[in-house]
Every structure is written in structure tokens, then in C-alpha cells.
Amino acid sequence: MTARLFLRVAATEAKKRLSYRVDFWLQACVVFLVEAMLAWFVWQAVFVESGRDRIAGLDFHGAVLYQVTAILTTKLVRGSEFSDQVSDDIYTGGYSRYLLYPVPYFGFKYAAQLGAQTPNALQFVVFGTLAPIVISSATIAVTPAGVLMAVPSLLVANVLYYVMSLALQGVAFWADNVWSLMVAQRLLSAVLGGAMFPLAILPDGARRVFDALPFRYLFADPIETLLGRRDAGAWAIGLAIAGGWIVVFAFLGHVVFRRGRRAYAGVGI
């Protein structure tokens, strides 16, 4: 797939997603504020009732800032997971088109998925810029270097989430509904990936298990990089491991789709 086609597909999708601007910003602001408020009150209860001033190396404002960054990061990494799905193409028979078109299916769908991220990216920039100003913490240091390092981490996390979901969506060749598998992926990755709480809060044994799984590279790594809690060495190793996981899941997705195509009748529902 050429870079030009990739960009054109992404731009078309971005344009489509930005067509309902008022509705989007209204919902985005309300949803973000509610999520941030819930995080604020829960962490306030934890800090006040434990009587501690540091948890997982974070003070109260640091914990809230971690959670707010997690809210924005999860949107950016997951993207539009429940719309324009690969599984929809399989159900409706739309997948047949791509078997004939001279474009690689996964590349085309990823370009569309990336374009669909534009509203989330805008939210990330706007709220992500405001958050460290409004909630300042002595335990968090957002620096230009951290922000620059976080960009590739976020891109890699987005690709990793996408390839993880491909293998699950490929189950649509055999099952009539894979929606629940996508929800399961969302929940598991949130808990195991550090989107619900900083992984540093876990006891050593549990943290070693979480570190061995691919989920921390979806959320915890980009968040910690952005908040200046990872040095360059750990960041580079994290990117390399995430790259390895991408290869593993891409291979798995490839195997599922290769087998699935044998079962695919192309008639749709």
C-alpha cells in the first residue's frame, strides 16, 4: 500500500469523524469531566482514608493526573474499536471487496482506523495540555523530551491494540457475534495495562506477571513516558518489546484470517 493512499484513506476518515463537531465536543467534554471527577473522588478517598501522602510514588494530585492521562490515552490507543469493524466486513460480506481490490486489507483498515482517531487526538492535545496546568504535582514532571518520547510509544500502542483486536475480530468467520470479545479485550487491557491504576501500586510478584504480558505497553508505558516516569533506556526497551508483541499478534491475526477465509462464504447476513 502506498503512503499516498494510506494518507488519503486516513484523511477521508478523519473528515467523516469531524463532521458532527458540536455534538462531538459536547459529549467529549461531559464524558471527560465525569471520568476525571470520578477518578478525583476515588483517589481522594484512598489518600484520606489511608492517611498516606504517597502511593506508588505519586502524591494525590499525581495519582489524579495519572488517571486523567490514562483516560485520554485509552481513547487514543483503542480508537473507534466498536465502529467500522473488520468483523462487520465479514458479517455483511463487505470483506469480499477487499479480496478483489489491489490494496492490502489490514493496511487499508488501519489507515481508516488511524484517521478515525483524529477527534481523540484533538481531545488528547486540548485536555492533555490543560491537565498538568490545572492539576500540578510534585511527583510528576511533564517535559518536552517526555512528550516527544511518548509520541512513538502511543503510535506503537495503537498498532498493538489494533493487531490484538484483529485476531479476535477474525473469530467472526465462525461466530455470529464477536462484540463481547471486543468488550473483554477492552476490560482486560484496562486492568492489566495500567489504565485503571498505576501498575507500580502492585506487589512485586504481581507486577512481574503484569510486566510479562503485552498489556502494559498499551497504556502504562505511554502514560509513564509522558509523565516523565521512565528514563530513555527503559523507554527504548519497552518500545522494542512492544514491537515484538506486534509481530506475535500480527502473525496470530494472519493465521486466523487465513483459516477464516476458507470458511468465508462471502454472502453476508
Binding site: V46, I55, A184, M196, F197, I201
Partner: peptide, 28 residues
């Protein structure tokens, strides 16, 4: 699949509060 999803939904709450209670004797 749906049964599995619901079980994971339950587990994600149990883990969330389980982790928070490691740090604080009470929540709310």
C-alpha cells in the same frame, strides 16, 4: 463469549478494589 465477557467485567471490579484496598484499609 457473552458469559466470558460478563465474568471478566466482574473480575475487573474485584481486581480494582482489591488493589486499592492494598493501599487503604477502607474506601468510602
Amino acid at each position: 463469549f457473552r458469559v466470558g465477557m460478563d465474568v471478566i467485567w466482574n473480575l475487573h471490579y474485584l481486581v480494582f478494589y482489591g488493589v486499592l484496598t492494598l493501599e487503604s484499609p477502607t474506601i468510602g
